[in-house]
Amino acid sequence: MRLSTLLAAGLVLCVNATWAAGPAQWGYGGAQGPAHWGGLSPDFTVCEQGRNQSPIDIRSAVTAKLPPLRTHYTSGPATIVNNGHTIQVNFAPGGILGLDGEDFELKQVHFHAPSENTIDGRSFPFEAHFVHADAKGALAVIGVMYETGAANEALAPIWAELPGQAGPVRALSQAVDAARLLPATMGYYRYSGSLTTPPCSEGVRWLVLKTPLTVSAEQVAAFERIMGGPTNRPVQPLNGRLIAE
């Protein structure tokens, strides 16, 4: 199967509600946890055999002349879903990330507690992944870290409508301005990785922002109560990959 097809399949897994029972169930603990994903389905073998897996511990980055990130996100209607693995907000078309001379459209943002990527061995209490796709289905993900502190006002309207149980996609009552969900300073680390959930497809361009945002302990606790436990895949071997900054 072509890489673009695999990545597009992975995006569908992320974007569409996956709350209904399926042939290959996975989770974050026990026999369905990350250590076993590769054996749960033939479609998940990359989770075990892949050499460019995410998340990673970001350290010893190579200094490079990375261009500034160019984002043009718009405010508009959005939907929300508890897919049994995370809370995900799906955006209307129009948000753009310019990267490598291409336009990647913002598809969705979802969350993990604690963070999946770590920086110099440091885990953060919360992480957001902004998933983008180009016209061929290739993916680019912006990772945003959160420190415990003041409540995050940009997240507050979303948190007011968090689905308490896994279920279908539903519309949010307020428009979402995706630009407000990003920090003002956009310095970043870059590496080549994968989806952090099955099928763990590789070829994903990862852009992890250096500047964390704040989130209140209550906001994190509300997410954790709904999800019922940690929602992070452990960091994966670097296998010789370079991290640029």
Rank of each mutant, 00 (worst) to 15 (best):
S216Q: 07
T63M: 09
A160M: 09
A166H: 05
P55M: 02
G137M: 01
T185I: 09
K107E: 13
R122N: 03
I80A: 09
L97C: 09
S201P: 05
S123L: 15
R59A: 14
E153K: 07
A133I: 01
G149F: 09
A135C: 08
R170E: 11
Q108S: 12
N232F: 07
L106P: 00
Y146N: 08
A171C: 04
L106W: 02
E127V: 08
D120F: 02
N52E: 15
I226W: 05
A61V: 12
T71L: 03
H132E: 02
Q108P: 00
A21G: 14
P23K: 00
F44N: 04
S173G: 10
T45F: 07
P237A: 04
P237T: 05
P183S: 06
Y188K: 05
P77Y: 03
Y73N: 04
N16E: 10
A171V: 11
A222I: 04
Y146S: 07
L40K: 02
Q108H: 11
Q219P: 07
T74W: 13
A135Q: 14
S41M: 15
L7W: 00
W19P: 01
L99S: 00
G143Q: 04
A61W: 10
P114H: 03
P237H: 05
T18A: 15
C47Y: 10
S194V: 02
R180A: 15
R170W: 09
N232Q: 13
S60V: 01
L40P: 02
A150V: 10
D177C: 00
D57C: 09
G193R: 00
A140S: 11
T63N: 12
R122M: 09
D100C: 08
G137H: 02
M227A: 03
P67L: 15
V141H: 03
Y189Q: 11
A24N: 15
P125T: 08
A20N: 14
G94M: 06
I80L: 06
H132S: 03
V144N: 00
P114N: 03
G84Y: 09
F91M: 14
M145H: 12
A113C: 12
A35Q: 11
L99Y: 12
G187F: 07
F91K: 08
T86G: 09
A140Q: 00
A64W: 01
G22V: 04
A61H: 13
F111Q: 03
R51S: 15
T63L: 14
T197W: 11
A17L: 05
A156E: 13
N83W: 07
G228D: 12
L13T: 15
L207T: 00
V235H: 06
V235K: 08
P198M: 06
R59V: 13
G33E: 08
I87H: 13
V204C: 01
I96G: 06
T231L: 07
M1I: 13
A178R: 00
L139G: 04
Y73S: 01
G38H: 12
T79Y: 08
N152H: 06
W19Y: 13
L106T: 01
N90Y: 03
P23E: 01
H36L: 06
H112P: 13
T86W: 15
Q108G: 02
I142N: 04
S173E: 10
T63I: 11
G27M: 08
G143Y: 04
T185F: 05
P212K: 04
A171I: 06
P198E: 07
Q165E: 10
A221M: 10
F104D: 01
A166G: 04
G30H: 02
L40H: 02
T211D: 13
